[in-house]
Design a binder for these strands. Sequence first.
DNA 1: GATAGGAGCTGTAGTCGCTACAGGTTCAAG
DNA 2: CTTGAACCTGTAGCGACTACAGCTCCTATC
Lengths: 133, 133
Amino acid sequence: MMANSYAIGTLSKHTGVNIETIRYYERIGIMPKPPRTAGGQRIYETAHLKRLAFIRRSRELGFSLDEIRALLRLVDGGDYSCGEVQEMTLAHIADIRRKIADLRRMERVLKDMAAKCDGGDVPECPIVDALSA
Amino acid sequence: MMANSYAIGTLSKHTGVNIETIRYYERIGIMPKPPRTAGGQRIYETAHLKRLAFIRRSRELGFSLDEIRALLRLVDGGDYSCGEVQEMTLAHIADIRRKIADLRRMERVLKDMAAKCDGGDVPECPIVDALSA
DNA sequence: GATAGGAGCTGTAGTCGCTACAGGTTCAAG
DNA sequence: CTTGAACCTGTAGCGACTACAGCTCCTATC
């Protein structure tokens, strides 16, 4: 394999993205079909590495593959405006805040329930009662 | 339909659980197979209503169906101890806290990224740069 | 040049918790 | 008795992977 070109396993190690997942990304069209060796194995280059790292980082930040697709379209198009990207990011932040609020509500309720419980061996449980209510 | 017995649609309305979901719960064994009319339609009673409400409430609090299965086993067994239920609840709370921490980290990073962006029309975007880094 | 074995290939099926049909049957009101 | 709303079963789809099985290829060593 030439310098600056990688097999799928190397790409996987460099980006921390599973091999199966890389092939999955290709199948759903979020990663391009790379050239192949005569024997049919994928050959990646630095551009692929960067793109995959972008995807990985975006996934880590909770963007859905659809959102990432949109981000990549903007970037690929070359004519993206910072405003569009910012808009998506802000929408995503709002989404995360909603999720946090939901989880905090759950946490509070569960904590209250658990606090009523002395953890004894009795077959009467305030948590079960609360869940049944 | 007799008093204190309900068709699936009524159960659905009472609990806010989708009809399809109720049948799904039955298929995966989390709701019992109810008796049927001569024509094959499901007949539910107050016990079913309570059980489904329990499931719904637990789902709202983020318990997985597997966790709910475990909770129900404890309750059904009759010999459950409050301690076991409390243990599951505390584990679940820990899980929720982890999720909240993750989301907060995401939020912070995204917020920082978005703050660097003036939302202009320029094709150079600090968010994209940050995602690529 | 032969051989071993690690790495890669395709295609399919499973995960979780539903949801959405299609195409049929039953029930209850008028 | 007729209408039509509600119910039935079975299957397939979602999102984002993951895990095989059963191959083929590539490369390092002898």
